[in-house]
Nucleic acid binder design. Sequence first.
DNA 1: GTCTATAATTCGATAGAC
DNA 2: GTCTATCGAATTATAGAC
Lengths: 200, 200
Amino acid sequence: MSDPHHVPARPRRSDATRAAILAAARERFAVDGYERATVRSVAAQAGIDPSMVMRYFGSKEGLFAAAVDVDLHIPEPGEIPRERLGEALVQHFLDLWEQDTVLVTLLRVGVTHRAGAERMREVFRRQLVPAAERFGRDPADAPRRAMLVASQVLGMALLRYVLRFGPAAEMPREDVVAWLAPTVERYITAPDARGVGDAP
Amino acid sequence: MSDPHHVPARPRRSDATRAAILAAARERFAVDGYERATVRSVAAQAGIDPSMVMRYFGSKEGLFAAAVDVDLHIPEPGEIPRERLGEALVQHFLDLWEQDTVLVTLLRVGVTHRAGAERMREVFRRQLVPAAERFGRDPADAPRRAMLVASQVLGMALLRYVLRFGPAAEMPREDVVAWLAPTVERYITAPDARGVGDAP
DNA sequence: GTCTATAATTCGATAGAC
DNA sequence: GTCTATCGAATTATAGAC
């Protein structure tokens, strides 16, 4: 994840600039996508010189990699009442998409750029699949169940937060939860595609 | 849709070049996205001069608009046995995504570019929503039901055909149909979010 | 640490010869 | 109808002054 070497104990003077660049980069990448988000526009929004971005992050790709470092914070099974599994998960995912722009950034760039797609695969493999292992019954099924849940959640996020389609963006949040919760719950708990509950 | 004026009856000599440009454009836009697909690369792949692209389509945006002219061909309710509504629709959507690259192109550009997003909204409004009106019961609900179906189908297509995630790309087609069919059917026929069947 | 200046490409679009 | 030549603008990245 981070630097394996020594981490300086006290904050350096440049940390503020570094944070400003990252914040600006997240917004520019989210709004414009990878290609149209220029190093110059990031620097302008951060109020510094374009060459500083190169100094801190080496290249445009390095800047992107530093900008999208996401933790899904998926709750543990013990923290959720079993009869509200789908509802709790959908609520949590909507929170993630609404609390900042990092997931919009990741999706937008992942669709367009090789580095972005690889980053999405990594988040899926290291966070979503392990979570599916904790929630599901058969660990061998975890990648498939995680993928099904991701397909529904990503599709809704695409329409609602990225493309901002009218019907998707205007739908009350509670309605989104009500419609998606049974789907997500079935993908995680159903013994097979035809099953509805969690009976064996 | 097309030119409201006179349409020449006999094929002109330039139609072959025009078709070659369009075919090349669809592939370049699909693979590279809007920004990285340059007019020059399209021309190179079509085996003609870059200036020809401008001559035929006026601008890069004009080329894109001509390249993504998609017809979803959604079947009529009478053509589908009611007990297999979800299955038939999912099968049809998978066919659309697999038969050529135009939908991959549309999604890829729609996420990045203003013109692409507008094009997606138009397809949704003029093809998907009317289809939902024909299949559903309450026409006022059609936009919402169409959006729910689109969210699930687009999400799966995103993982399977655009990002090519392992679990999504390798899942047998019949399994995808089996898992998604009940979801799609519920989004179209359920009286409300909590409903499972189509009872009132 | 920050900025100025600029190198080296690359792009969309145009003008005009044939 | 096709191509050559090129313009003007924008980009990433670098070199070096302060």
